[in-house]
Amino acid sequence: MIPDLGRYASEVLSAYVVSLALLAGVVAWYWLRARAVRSQLDQVEQRQERTE
């Protein structure tokens, strides 16, 4: 599966793993924040509709 990386295997693999983890981290952060803000906004909007 993984190609023969020779003696630099650890460097190449760690570069890929850490970079993808960082990317996944920032994507997950944006995603979670988007979800949190959207649900909060929905709550506020519903509350205001009820009172109006």
Binding site: P3, D4, L5, G6, R7, Y8, A9, E11, V12, A15, Y16, S19
Partner: peptide, 11 residues
């Protein structure tokens, strides 16, 4: 550079 050249696709 051996296999380290593959890092270029991220770097």
């Amino acid at each position: 550079q051996g296999s380290t050249v593959k890092i270029i696709f991220l770097h």
